[in-house]
Amino acid sequence: MRILIADDHRLIVEGVKLKLAELDSDVEFSVAMDVDELRQVIRDEPAPAIALIDLTMPGSDGHAHLIETMASLPGVPVLVLSGAEDSRLMRELLSLGVQGFIPKAYSPEVMLSAVRLVLSGGVYVPPMMLLEGSAAPDVSAASHAETTASLEERLRKLLTERQIDVLRLLSQGKPNKVIARDLGISEGTVKIHLAAIFRALNVRNRVEAVVASRRISGL
């Protein structure tokens, strides 16, 4: 399997290669450090199974290099790498046809999971975008209420009722021992629920889970 990585930061490229090497023992990489190199790689090397492309690499003009890559590699999923965490930007890029958006601040494990999801035919949507929804700033109160209800419904599809109970108490700043006491379960069971919550929300720790939960009304 060949993976195309286009980014001008050598440390990021090497970090991505190191983590994605876990996908397969025979994985190979094509690397481009700017848009001209990206065009050359697309022209001269075998088509990759997936492409991870920096949003603002040298030679880029807005999103043109992404659109050009998707046109040149039909059928190859494109994942955007970016230092930005702007949900409006994410929506814009997903509407253009990219298969996912990975903020560079996310952990290598999240990136690996995102790539696996996309390779299996899915689309990776960052948790912050999933939880914020797509309402514009000037939506009416009624529309906002509908959006909030929709987000809560989405969250309930990701988590069980008990996991939502744990998440609610976690968002109140309660430690595992208190959560266990309040819910009448063991601390070990709380830890199991937390691990499932982290996986479902694609977050790395308690703090990120709390941030995510507080974007949902009622939690």
Rank of each mutant, 00 (worst) to 15 (best):
E45Q: 11
V210S: 07
R116F: 04
G100S: 06
T56E: 11
E208N: 06
A51Y: 00
G122M: 02
E68T: 03
S95G: 09
E132W: 13
E132Q: 12
A21D: 09
D61P: 08
F198Y: 14
D86W: 00
I12V: 14
K174F: 13
I53L: 08
K177V: 15
V80C: 06
S120D: 15
D54V: 13
A51T: 01
L169K: 08
L112K: 04
E146T: 09
V178P: 03
G97C: 11
V13R: 02
R156Y: 12
R154D: 12
D182S: 11
G121Y: 00
V210T: 06
L170S: 09
L169E: 08
S171G: 15
G83Q: 15
E92C: 01
E68V: 04
R39E: 10
G188A: 05
A32P: 03
V98L: 00
G121D: 04
Q99S: 14
K177A: 14
P126H: 11
I185T: 09
V78L: 04
R206Q: 11
A142P: 11
H65N: 04
M128F: 15
R215A: 13
R116T: 00
L23A: 05
H65C: 00
I67V: 13
V166K: 03
L52I: 05
M128I: 15
Y106A: 05
K157T: 14
E68H: 05
A145Y: 06
E45I: 10
L96H: 08
V210R: 02
T160N: 12
L94I: 03
S72P: 07
H9N: 15
L66Q: 01
I197N: 04
P77D: 02
V13W: 01
E68S: 07
M70R: 10
L159P: 07
V203W: 01
G122A: 00
V207G: 12
L52V: 07
F101D: 02
V178W: 06
I67Q: 09
F29P: 07
V31D: 02
E92L: 05
P46H: 03
L81V: 01
S143W: 04
R204N: 03
R88I: 05
R88N: 07
F101A: 02
L194M: 12
H9F: 10
A105E: 07
L151R: 15
T147G: 14
A200V: 05
A64P: 09
I216A: 01
R91I: 02
V178S: 07
D34V: 06
R2P: 11
G59N: 06
A32L: 06
S134A: 14
